[in-house]
Amino acid sequence: MIIKREEIEKLATLSRISIDEKTITDVSERLSSVLNLVDQLQTANTDSVQSISRPFQVSQRLRADEITESNQRDAFQVIAPATDNGLFTVPKMID
């Protein structure tokens, strides 16, 4: 199985990763190699097998709907790439 260029481009967009034009063939070959490995899954008979997303059916605990965290905006903004007046700033989105 070989992943086509258009599919790689779509994946890159979905993943928000820029893929250099020069490396797109290499990326495609290596992804295809991994997908050939995972295609072995199709040999398994999983009729009537329930899927699991966590080990030993562990369920996540629920907690009371109460505020448990204090406001640490200043501590978090110290490590942010760009802030302004208590806000996280990003490039302009709407003209």
């Binding site: 979905l14 990326v27 992804l31 995972v38």
Partner: peptide, 23 residues
Amino acid sequence: ILIGTYCLSAGYYDAYYGKAQQV
């Protein structure tokens, strides 16, 4: 990230992610 995105994307989810969870 690209492999994970592929396995979770529309049209491939059941064949990859769903199947892997059954396995």
